[in-house]
Amino acid sequence: MTSATELPRTEDTFVELENVTLTYGRGDKQVTALGLTNLRVNQGDFVALVGPSGCGKSTILKLVTGLITATEGFVYVAGREVGAAPVRVGMAFQNPTMLPWLTVRDNVMMPLKIVPPFRQEYQSKKKTEFRDRADALLKEVGLANFGDKHPWQLSGGMLQRASLCRALIHEPQLLMLDEPFGALDQFTREELWAVMQELWMKLKPTVLLVTHDLKEAGYLATRICVMRTRPGQIVDDAQVPFPRPRTIDMSYTPEFVSMTQRLREMIVSQRPVKETV
């Protein structure tokens, strides 16, 4: 089991959860979403969080983004308590959550309108530099001519690509992906993995990816953390040794298969029925 006391803090540590617990509700209805969790993520790491549903994977993302506050313990980003550090965060959810009244391009450009230092220049650059940047990014994910469309004119897969663009346009140091490929078909998913890998290798943000798909975790992540449920906790933390750029073919090699099998067994063995806690 990983513990903050065992893993020394290094120069590279970018995200740190220290003895974090999170409970919802009060009294009898109290639910512990996350119980005494420690996690360190280095700068430029791509960490996948896998585990059974309800194990608090998304909770970790929300804590690191500052959308919710830990009941106990501390969350540090870039060496300071979450929210205090001027870190640019990008986020993509399972739902594309595009704003329906804006064009796809304007949706993608939204972070530039909000996040400093871009927001100060937004009015002067939104029709030139920022617009070009959005178009370039859209082109990279295969949406070259869709900038002027409205979200409802795009398919789910296309919206998810646009959602990735929005998460990346402000060059975030920290990228939060909450099952962004979960609702897509297998082929679109695999295609987007490749796109995601390419973008990550180019921009090198620190990524936390929540997923149910072990193949996805193996393909994308440099490190996979397995969580268990009730209370949510990290029970295994392993590096993914395969070289980059990874391919879909790689996921059929014996080494890859045995890795996903090991992860699968770990998750299946924690089903509530077999739980001994």
């Binding site: 983004t65 500052g66 959308l67 929210g83 965060v89 990008g90 986020m91 959810f93 739902n95 959550t97 704003l99 939204m110 972070p111 309108k113 909000i114 996040v115 929005r166 402000h170 939060m176």
Partner: peptide
């Protein structure tokens, strides 16, 4: 929808930002 607001809050948007943009 809270999801729409979450997109903005993840970007550390202020209350006014969220009001104007969402």
């Amino acid at each position: 929808e809270p999801e729409l607001e979450d997109v903005m809050r993840a970007l550390r948007a202020t209350k006014t930002d969220i009001l104007w943009n969402v």
